[in-house]
Design a protein around this nucleic acid. Sequence first.
DNA 1: TAGATTGTTAATCGATTAACAATC
DNA 2: TAGATTGTTAATCGATTAACAATC
Lengths: 213, 213
Amino acid sequence: MKKHDKKQIPQRVVSRLAMYFRVLSQLDAAGVERISSRELGEMMSITPSQIRQDLSYFGEFGQQGYGYRVKYLYEEICKILGLKEQHTMILIGVGNLGRAIASYTNFRNRGFYLIAAFDVREEIIGKRFNDLVIKPMHELGSFLDENKVDIAVLTVPASQAQEIANRLVEKGIKGIWNFAPIKLEVPEGVVVEHVHISDSLYSLSFRLREKTT
Amino acid sequence: MKKHDKKQIPQRVVSRLAMYFRVLSQLDAAGVERISSRELGEMMSITPSQIRQDLSYFGEFGQQGYGYRVKYLYEEICKILGLKEQHTMILIGVGNLGRAIASYTNFRNRGFYLIAAFDVREEIIGKRFNDLVIKPMHELGSFLDENKVDIAVLTVPASQAQEIANRLVEKGIKGIWNFAPIKLEVPEGVVVEHVHISDSLYSLSFRLREKTT
DNA sequence: TAGATTGTTAATCGATTAACAATC
DNA sequence: TAGATTGTTAATCGATTAACAATC
C-alpha cells in the first residue's frame, strides 16, 4: 500500500520526475545498470532523501543494499508520466516557435504525434509542413469534431491565445501546451502547461544584476 | 530600511516578479492607473499577502488606503529586473528554435540585442539571419575576445551543450540561457537559466493521466 | 474624519532533509 | 554474515497566508 495514496502529487514532484526520466534515459543509454539514490542525487545536485521521498509517492522501485536497476526505474517512470501511451497533438500557430516545437523529433519518439497544424496567415495556408498541409483557422472547429485530439500546442501571439483557448475548451480539448506569455483561464478539468520563455529571460537578467550589484 | 536587506532573493520571488511585470505592462497599456494587491491577486490567482510580501523584498511601492500606481510599480519592477539596461546576446545554434527565440522582437524592445549568431552547419554559415551573417563556430572564441557579450542563447543539441558552455565560461560569459535538455555544470558566478521545454510536455502528459485515472 | 489598504510581524502550512529500522 | 541502501517516519526549514498597527 502506497503512503500517499489519496493525495494529489505536488507539481514540484512531477517536474522532478521529468528530470529523473531524462537522467535515467541517459544512464541507460550509457549502459549503466544500477544506481543508488546517493549517486543519482550527486549527479542532479539534489539530496538522496528527496529522490526516495519523491519515488515513494508512486511505489517501491528499489532494493535495500543495492539501489535501483536503471532500466527498470526508467521504464516505471515512463509509465507514470504516461509516455507509454500515444498522444495526438495539433499545432496552432505555425511561426518559428511552432515549427521548432513541432519538428523536435524526439516528441514523436515519446508517443506525441502531430496530426494537424493551423494558422491564420493566408500566405502559409495550404503549404506543407512536416508531412502536414497547414490548415486555415476556421477549420479548427470541424477538425476537432472529427478527430480525437489530446493536446493543443499554442504558439500564437498573446493577444489571440485566450480566445483560441476558449474555442479549444468548448470542443473538449483537455490539454493545452501554452507558449504565449499570458495566463489562460480555463475551466476545472482542463490542464494547461505554460512554458515561460520570456519570464525566464527576465529572471536571467535579474540574476546577472544581482551578481554584480 | 528594507526588511530583507542581506538575504538573497528566492528564485520563486524572482519568477513572480517577472509575472507582475507582464501583468502590469498589460494594465498600463490598457490605461489602468491604480491597482490594489487584492485586485492584482485576483487577476493572477495569488494572495494579496504574497504580492505585498514579494514587493517588500525590494522596497515600498504602495500607499496605504490607495494601493499602487500601475505605471510607477511597473517602472520600478522594470528597474529591479534590469530591463532598463542594455544586454548583448549571441545565439549559438541557428535551428528552428534559435530562430524563433532570436526573432522574438519584444526582446529587442526590452533591451536585449542579438549581436551575432553561430552554427556548425556548413550549409547555413554565411547566410543572413535577422541582419546578421551566420558565423562558423570556430570563430566563437575570437569573437568573444573582441566583443562584450552578456548572454549566450544556447539552442544546440544536448550532446554539444556542455562542451560549448565550457568554452563560453572560459571566455568569461556570465549568463547562459539554455534550451538544451541537460543540466549544465558551470562554476560559481555564472548564471544559467534553463528553459525546460520537454520536461514541461512530460508534466502535461502526467497531469492529463492524473485526471482520467 | 472614516474606510481602505499598505508593509510587516506572527502563525500556519507544506516541502525538504535527517534519521533509522527493515532487509537485501 | 556484514555492509549498503532502501522506504518511511520525524525533525527542520522555508515559503505562504493571516492578522493588524500604521497611515493615506
